[in-house]
Computed example of a mutant assay.
Amino acid sequence: MQGNVGSKIRDARKEQNITLRDLSERSGLSVSQLSKLENGKARLTVDVALMIAGVLHVPVASFLFSPKPGMQARRSITRAGSGILHHGNAMEFEVLCSDFRDKTNIFWRVTLRARSFEENGGWRSHSGEEFIHVLSGSLELHTVHYDPTVLQPGDSILFDGEMRHAYIALGDEPVVMLMSNTVPRDGLPAGAVV
């Protein structure tokens, strides 16, 4: 797979008539490192892919992901307020774009009203990663390994879901956030519905 990634980088670079040395100077990566990437002898990390994609003005996803045969034309739309609703402890989860089969992420629009750790139901944890982007309100995120973090509208955070965590809404307004959870590699449990 790394060789395939390397050829994508090489093709994007050559389409723009950029030499390895030019790409090196613009990205801050060594010519040797870039050559190894293009020849499949070095592993591409997300940080390096972001640097190269920024210089070449191409979507970083074109380096990080390969399309799956037969699944290139999928899309899912959730109209405002039409997602499946789940209610938790002082939280409301609206499932977004849930009709893909074999998906790797679950997307939610979450409204949080919990004003205390207890009202939120205490600690929670799950497999995979969790991403949060605050749309409105002020969120205080508690985790067992870090001091509480306050996130304001426009702030985002990504963390390991297995780390116990809890959410608290600060102020008078509920917190509205977009959340994404990765689906564990072995998929959702049998009978799970989102």
Rank of each mutant, 00 (worst) to 15 (best):
M71N: 10
G70Q: 14
G70Y: 14
V144F: 00
E94W: 06
S30Q: 07
V144L: 12
N4K: 13
I9H: 07
E130W: 01
A114D: 00
S125G: 02
E129V: 05
I168T: 15
S62K: 15
L34P: 10
I18F: 12
I52D: 01
R79G: 09
L37I: 12
P153W: 12
N181H: 10
T143G: 00
P153E: 06
V183F: 11
D186T: 13
P153Y: 13
H86N: 03
H87S: 14
T111A: 11
R101I: 00
Y146T: 07
I84F: 08
S180T: 13
G40H: 03
S7W: 14
V193A: 11
A53E: 06
P69D: 15
D160R: 10
W108V: 12
Q2C: 02
F159S: 09
G54R: 07
D102L: 07
S62P: 06
S125P: 02
M177D: 02
G81S: 13
G28T: 06
T104V: 08
N181K: 07
G171E: 08
H87C: 01
I157V: 15
I132L: 12
P153Q: 04
K36I: 00
M1P: 02
G191Q: 06
V175L: 03
G128A: 07
G171P: 10
P148A: 06
V55G: 05
F107A: 10
S156P: 00
H57M: 06
D155I: 05
Q72P: 00
V150T: 10
G88F: 09
E119G: 05
P189G: 02
R101H: 08
V48Q: 09
L178H: 15
F107K: 01
S180C: 13
R10H: 14
R164H: 04
S138E: 15
G81P: 12
A166I: 01
V46D: 11
L141Q: 10
F100T: 01
A192K: 04
L96G: 05
G128M: 05
S30N: 09
G128T: 01
L85D: 04
Q16N: 01
S127P: 12
T149F: 11
E173G: 03
K103C: 03
L112C: 00
L96H: 08
G122E: 08
L50H: 14
A114C: 09
T143Q: 05
M177K: 00
G54N: 13
L23E: 07
G187W: 10
L188R: 07
L85A: 13
V183E: 05
A114I: 02
H86P: 04
R164W: 05
L96A: 03
G122D: 04
Q16D: 01
D155Q: 03
G6R: 06
S98K: 12
P174W: 07
L34E: 04
V48C: 08
N17A: 13
I106M: 05
A169V: 03
W123P: 03
H57L: 02
N17T: 11
E25L: 13
E38Y: 07
V144S: 05
N17S: 13
L23I: 05
Y146E: 10
G121T: 09
L37P: 10
A80D: 07
L178W: 03
M91E: 11
A166H: 10
A80N: 10
A42K: 10
H87I: 12
L188M: 15
S7L: 15
R185W: 00
G137Q: 08
S76M: 05
N89I: 01
L20C: 07
G154D: 04
E118P: 00
S27Q: 11
V193Q: 14
S24Y: 13
